[in-house]
């Protein structure tokens, strides 16, 4: 990556991040004001939130400004936006969210079998025997360790509700 390119990526990333935190900080400060500031001698619920929010906004504003002025030197360390695999991330996140939602109604064992199979197969396709065996073994091991060993209150779902 050339210096110019790196600089441009960094500028963009820091601008987005800085803007986000400026907005977030201001919002928190506003929430703090709503909660009541009290006085310095008798701080209210919102006093700390108010000042912390303002500090956050102020400091992010500084990063915004320095982002424009900064030299590109340190950019390579982190600003790796190339070759992003959005699909993999989206699949993993969506699977976890669906799993969390399904855990109680469906129950631990079926939900976990499906979760593990999807994670093994959809992200970086493994041969089917690895997928099935992997899902079966991990579900069993986790069930034995957590439910039978430690007595975790894992949801029974369909199996237990009768």
């Amino acid at each position: 990556m050339s210096g110019q390119q790196a600089r441009r990526t960094r500028l963009k990333a820091d601008t987005v991040g800085g803007l986000f935190w400026v907005a977030g900080g201001l919002w928190i400060a506003w929430e703090g004001r709503e909660l009541g500031l009290g006085t310095l001698r008798d701080p209210g619920s919102g006093l700390i939130l108010f000042w912390v929010g303002l500090a956050m906004a102020a400091m992010s504003a500084v990063t915004l400004v320095t982002g424009f002025l900064a030299r590109p030197a340190a950019a390579g360390e982190w600003a790796d936006w190339h070759g992003l695999e959005w699909r993999k991330l989206a699949v993993v996140l969506a699977t976890m969210i669906v799993y969390a939602g399904a855990l109680e109604p469906v129950g631990f064992i079926p939900a976990t079998l499906v979760l593990m199979a999807v994670l093994f197969r959809a992200v970086e396709p493994q041969p089917w025997h690895v997928v099935l065996l992997g899902a079966l073994i991990t579900t069993t091991v986790v069930y034995v360790v957590f439910k039978l060993g430690l007595g975790t209150q894992l949801p029974d779902g369909l199996l237990g509700a009768g």
Partner: peptide, 25 residues
């Protein structure tokens, strides 16, 4: 590719078992 599903699984169940709360997941 083999390791990450296992880690994710343990994270989820571990977090759930602290307070039996789906919300925590």
């Amino acid at each position: 590719r083999i390791l990450f599903p296992l880690i994710l699984m343990f994270c989820i169940i571990g977090v759930f078992s602290v307070g039996n709360a789906i919300f925590d997941i």
